[in-house]
Structure formats: structure tokens, C-alpha cells
Design a protein around this nucleic acid. Structure first.
Length: 424
RNA sequence: GGAGGAGUGGCAGAGCGGUUGAAUGCACCGGUCUUGAAAACCGGCAUACUCGAGAGGGUAUCGGGGGUUCGAAUCCCUCCUCCUCCGCCA
């Protein structure tokens, strides 16, 4: 969420930036500026009256002590009229604040200058292409959903029986490979200096609001209504919220956190042939990296995160490319996002396996995540996060790219974790 | 789930309708003293919003929200959290 003052002081810049994501509602920005001004005016008027009330109340106290009841009751009458006016102002203030909040929630983050304009994923910029050849597979190559069944390692039908569509059951070597990937990713994050967390897998409303899942993506989360808790769609939510309402010191930076969690997404409205197998599921595993940074350092941090994710894919030996998302494809809360896609050689498609973003102050404003500078002045910190990595499509790509007529070869780096080198 | 008790500043802990944003102690920061340190002494030390060029001012905040009152940390309602006991349980 942007700050009204920021919008007011940078209106042209904000509007110019938002054009890249097809947001052209200058009227909404004006409304925000007006509502914020009105909010201040009401506040100011109400404060003045309250000040008079407070003074008079003290006076009444004194008069009572002195036994001057008559004088006191005269003032009491006056105070009552002030109070009525204050009540009136507060009612208006509530209304103005609600409208201001609603308006602010409809303004997406301002894209970074490097974000290309565009509407769809067609307009994303290839930031780093794959220069080497793709794996060449044998003639009997199969997509991962067939391999899963053939080797009996991931069972979607069983998931349907136990839960429903999109809840895969991992079995035997499939389960072990999954666990190996999680351990490998966590170990790499640990080596890179990220502090490991195992956060709750459900969050309250305040947390879902803090990272922007609410109210923007209400329908995408599973909601346990009886306790009003949400199943997390990503570890970003509980982990980033660790720093909600926190004021850091400058030398607390950088804050680097990681965590493995299952992720739950309703994926309402997604369907079609391209979501077969593991391409899109309701529950999946992911290792996330999250950072809280000084505004001057956040883009260097983003760079570092891109290298980290790229390093994982290099070690796994998976072909990948990096995209800089265009304005239209950029998430509501993000200023700059890079997507990683691996090439799945049997499907002959690119699959998104990671998304690394800088939210600048958009999240921290909602989170009230700030730091004090040397002069003790408070500023909003920058937050970033990235998948490192999301498991299902990595699994899919490994199964497809490493298939041979005799089985699926396990990438070298995972063997210490799997303790087998082939699925057959 | 049932019955009790409790939530006050960074921590500890007073206050229980009227100069209380809140005593006191500890911690912290600055100063005096000291060759240096400690001790002692003096001073400072919350957050948010807002007005002001600034100095500074106003308002709100004693777990959250609502209410009573001219006035609430103090009374009432409600929610949350923690502690003790009972029940259930991985």
C-alpha cells in the first residue's frame, strides 16, 4: 500500500509508473489526496475541541473541590455541546478513513523504472536467456505425469481419494526425492546466510493483511472460518510477518530468513490442459527466502537473490531462463519481479519455478516495518522475497529431463540426500 | 472444553474516578568527579497522528475494541493473550 503523502508529493511520477501496468485512474489518486486532506482537517478540528473539553474538565474538577457546584454545572453544559460536535466529526472521520483505505487498497505498487510496459506474459523481457542446448531425450520420452505413474512415485488419483484434485501423494522414492530437494534448498539458503524458520502453516487475518494477501486475494486462500485462520499460500506470509510492527536499527540489516512450508492455493478459475500433472496443484512444497533491507541496498539484495536461485538451478543441471516481468504481469504488490522458468524437455515448455521480487515499501507500509536511521528518524524498510525453490515444477522438470529408457537419473547434488542415484 | 487469576513504559513494579503520559527501581544515553574504570551525583530517556519554517504546541495511547462520566489506567461490556487447577489428547 502506498502512503498518501507519497502519492501527493509524487503524483505525476506515480501516475507515469502505473501506466506501465495499465493503471490510468488519475481520479483515484486525486480522491486519495483529497480524502487524506479531509482526514487531517477533521482531525485537527476535533483535536481542538477535545483540547477545550480536557481543559474544562480539569477546571470542573477544581471547582468541585472548592465546592463551587453552580459554576461547574455551567461549564458542564458547554462541554456537552463540544462533545456532541466531536461525536459528529468522528463519525465523518470514520467514513473518510474507510473510503481512504478502500481507495489506497486499489492502487498497485509503482513499478521500478526498468519494468517494461506491457499487458501479458508475451511482453516480459528475457533478462537472461538459456544459451546452451536443451537436453536430448530418447524416443520414448514421456511427460512427468506419465513417469509418475510408471514408477509409482507420485499418485494424483490417491490424492483425489484422500482429499481432492490437486493434492498429490508422494510415495517411496518420490517422497524421498521431494524431501531431498527441500533439504538441499534449505542447506543452500543456510550457506548463503539465511536464518531458517519453521513458521506456522496458518495465519490470522492481520498477517494475511500485512503481506497483502488480504483483501487482494481473498478467494485464493483456504479459510478456516471457525477459527478465522488462513492456510498459507506461501511461507512469505508467516515469515515476513515476523517483522510486522517492528522498528529495526540500521545495523540490524540485512535481515535474511528462509523457511520450508507447504503452500495451499485454491487456484479458483484455473483449468485446462496445461495444468496437468504437477503443473498446478492446490498443495505444494516450497522453500522461500525473505529479506528485509535498507532502501539503499534492496536492489543489490534482489541481485544477490537472483544469483542464489540461478545457482540452485545450475547445480541441479536444469535449463532455465530469467524474465523481467512487464507491468501487466507484475504482481499487485511488487515493484520489480524476476521469474525463473525451467525448460521441461518432454512437455517442451517453460515452467515457472521461482519468482523473486522487491516490494520496496509497499508491504512494509502495511506491516509497519520500519527502521531508525542515525538521526533516529523512522523510515519504512524494503521487503523482498523469492522462491528458492517451488518444488512441483522442479520435480516435473527433473523427471522429464533426467529420464532414460532405464529410469530417472538423480542429479549429482541430490544424491547425498536421496541416498539412491536412480528411480527405476 | 470447564473453574479461577492476571495483563501498566525496554524490564521490574506503584497507582484503582479529577495537574497521571503515568511514582519508584533497574537498564539505557549525556554530563560532573577520576590518571582510567567503578561508585556517587546531575540531567535526559515512549509511540502514533497532527499543527508549526523552527522553537514548540495539540490529540490519542496503561492487552484490543466498545460503553458510563464534565473527567477513566482506575467503573461496566466484549474480545484476545498469559498463569493455576480440572477434563481431553499427539
Amino acid at each position: 500500500m502506498l502512503q498518501p503523502n507519497f502519492i501527493k508529493e509524487n503524483k505525476e511520477r506515480v501516475l507515469e509508473g502505473l501506466k506501465k501496468r495499465n493503471f490510468t485512474d488519475a481520479h483515484l489518486l486525486d480522491e486519495i489526496i483529497d480524502l487524506d486532506q479531509r482526514r487531517k482537517d477533521i482531525q485537527s478540528e476535533s483535536d481542538h475541541l477535545q483540547s477545550s473539553v480536557n481543559k474544562s474538565s480539569k477546571e470542573i474538577g477544581m471547582l468541585f473541590k472548592q465546592g463551587k457546584k453552580d459554576e461547574a454545572s455551567v461549564i458542564q453544559e458547554q462541554v456537552k455541546t463540544w462533545k456532541a460536535k466531536i461525536t459528529e466529526l468522528n463519525t465523518e472521520a470514520d467514513d473518510v478513513k474507510t473510503r481512504l483505505q478502500d481507495a489506497l487498497l486499489n492502487v498497485p505498487n509503482v513499478p521500478h523504472p526498468s519494468v517494461p510496459a506491457g499487458n501479458t506474459d508475451e511482453d516480459n523481457e528475457v533478462y537472461q536467456a538459456w544459451e546452451k542446448p536443451f537436453p536430448t531425450l530418447h524416443d520414448g520420452k514421456k511427460p512427468h505425469w506419465e513417469l509418475m505413474e510408471e514408477y509409482d512415485i507420485i499418485d494424483l488419483k490417491l490424492g483425489v481419494k484422500v482429499t481432492g484434485a490437486g493434492f498429490p501423494v508422494y510415495k517411496g522414492k518420490g517422497a524421498k526425492l521431494q524431501r531431498a530437494l527441500i533439504s538441499y534448498f534449505l542447506d543452500k539458503a543456510d550457506e548463503a546466510g539465511y536464518l531458517e524458520y519453521i513458521p506456522p502453516h496458518m495465519v490470522n487475518e492481520a498477517s494475511a493483511r500485512g503481506t497483502g494477501q488480504l483483501p487482494d486475494k481473498e478467494g485464493q486462500m483456504y479459510h478456516a472460518t471457525q477459527d478465522d485462520l488462513y492456510l498459507i499460500p506461501t511461507a512469505e506470509v508467516p515469515i515476513t510477518n515476523i517483522y510486522r510492527d517492528v522498528i529495526l536499527k540500521e545495523d540490524d540489516f540485512p535481515v535474511k530468513m528462509t523457511g520450508y512450508t507447504p503452500c495451499f492455493r485454491r487456484e479458483a478459475g484455473s483449468y485446462g490442459a496445461h495444468v496437468r500433472g504437477l503443473n498446478r496443484v492446490h498443495q505444494f512444497d516450497k522453500v522461500e527466502i525473505v529479506r528485509v533491507e535498507h532502501p539503499d541496498k534492496s536492489y543489490a539484495a534482489l541481485e544477490e537473490m537472483i544469483k542464489h536461485v540461478g545457482g540452485l538451478l545450475d547445480e541441479l543441471g536444469l535449463p532455465y531462463r530469467i524474465l523481467r516481468l512487464c507491468g501487466g504481469d507484475l504482481g499487485f504488490t511488487s515493484a520489480l519481479t524476476f521469474d525463473f522458468e525451467t525448460y521441461s524437455a518432454a512437455q517442451e515448455r517453460w515452467l515457472e519455478v521461482s519468482s523473486v521480487s522487491n516490494f520496496e515499501t509497499f508491504q512494509s507500509n502495511r506491516l509497519k516495518l520500519r527502521f531508525k536511521d542515525k538521526d533516529n528518524k523512522k523510515h519504512l524498510a524494503h521487503t523482498l522475497n523469492g522462491s528458492a525453490l517451488a518444488l512441483p515444477r522442479i520435480m516435473a522438470t527433473i523427471l522429464e529431463n533426467y529420464q532414460t529408457p532405464d529410469g530417472i537419473i538423480i542429479p549429482e547434488v541430490l544424491r547425498p540426500y536421496t541416498r539412491f542415484d536412480k528411480i527405476d
